[in-house]
Computed example of a mutant assay.
Amino acid sequence: MATPNPELIAAIERTISNLQSGASYQWGHMGACNCGNLAQELTKFSKAEIHQFAMQRHGDWNEQLIDYCPTSGYPMDLMVNKMLEFGLTIDDLSHLERLSDPAILSRIEKEKRDQLNKNRREDVIFYLQVWANLLREKWLGEQDILDEIISEKKLKLPALV
């Protein structure tokens, strides 16, 4: 699962907003699919640029993620690398394209989960919303733990005279 952080959460939320506002969505288009829409937000590349990068090799997002090599020099790999810098993992991207992350799916009631369609805009938006909420909860939990650690360390400091 992605490393929760405000930049990634905000990018997912902007992707949700873009999709809700009618951003281009086409599951079979490398720049306008599930990963493509998030990639636009994280990398600032256009859907056409992302698609052009992807067409330099074979396969959809999942196949290209399997072949990902951070030192290949392929534009697609450089773009994926940029996405990973935001705390994502290859598995996160693969799951996003298929709406299949077990941690996210476990938060969705069975009836809705069983009807999720990887290439339906509304389902992608819903999945992204659940994911953003999960990441926010984890990030806030980590902040609470850090606050506790800092408080404990302050209590253990010798009194200054």
Rank of each mutant, 00 (worst) to 15 (best):
Q143I: 10
T43M: 04
R14E: 15
E49F: 00
D60S: 09
Q143D: 05
Q40N: 07
N119D: 12
R121G: 01
K44C: 10
E122I: 04
C35I: 07
T71S: 08
R121I: 00
P158Y: 11
I108S: 06
E122G: 03
G31P: 00
L99K: 12
Q40D: 03
A10T: 15
L140R: 15
E142L: 15
L65F: 02
F45S: 12
V130I: 10
E41H: 08
H51W: 01
V161E: 14
A11G: 10
A10H: 13
L38S: 06
D92M: 01
I125H: 07
K112N: 14
A23I: 10
T3F: 12
G31V: 01
G28E: 05
S17D: 12
P6Y: 12
I16T: 00
E111W: 07
P6H: 14
E152G: 15
Y74A: 15
P6W: 08
D77F: 04
I104Y: 08
E85I: 01
M83Q: 03
S94G: 12
R14M: 14
H95S: 09
D91C: 05
L146M: 14
L140V: 13
H51P: 00
D147I: 10
G141N: 09
G141Y: 07
Y25K: 00
R98Q: 09
R107H: 12
I149Y: 03
K112A: 14
N119V: 04
E41M: 09
P6K: 15
L93S: 02
S151Q: 12
M1D: 12
D77V: 02
S151H: 10
W61P: 02
S106R: 14
A23C: 11
M1R: 10
K154W: 06
W139I: 11
C69Y: 03
M83V: 06
A11T: 10
M1W: 11
L128T: 05
C33H: 06
Q64N: 08
L116A: 10
G59M: 00
L88S: 06
I145T: 12
P158R: 13
A103M: 14
I12L: 03
I16N: 02
T89H: 00
Q143A: 09
A132K: 02
L78H: 10
M30L: 03
L155T: 11
E7Y: 11
K47G: 05
E109Y: 12
L99P: 09
L128S: 06
N34V: 05
E41G: 06
K110L: 15
M30V: 02
S17M: 06
K154A: 13
N34Q: 04
K118A: 01
R136P: 12
K153N: 13
I150T: 13
L84N: 08
S72E: 08
I9A: 01
E63Y: 01
N117T: 14
D144I: 07
F86K: 07
L88Q: 06
I90N: 03
D147T: 11
E13A: 13
D67N: 09
K138W: 10
L116F: 03
K82P: 05
L38G: 03
K153D: 13
D123H: 04
N34G: 00
I108G: 04
A132S: 09
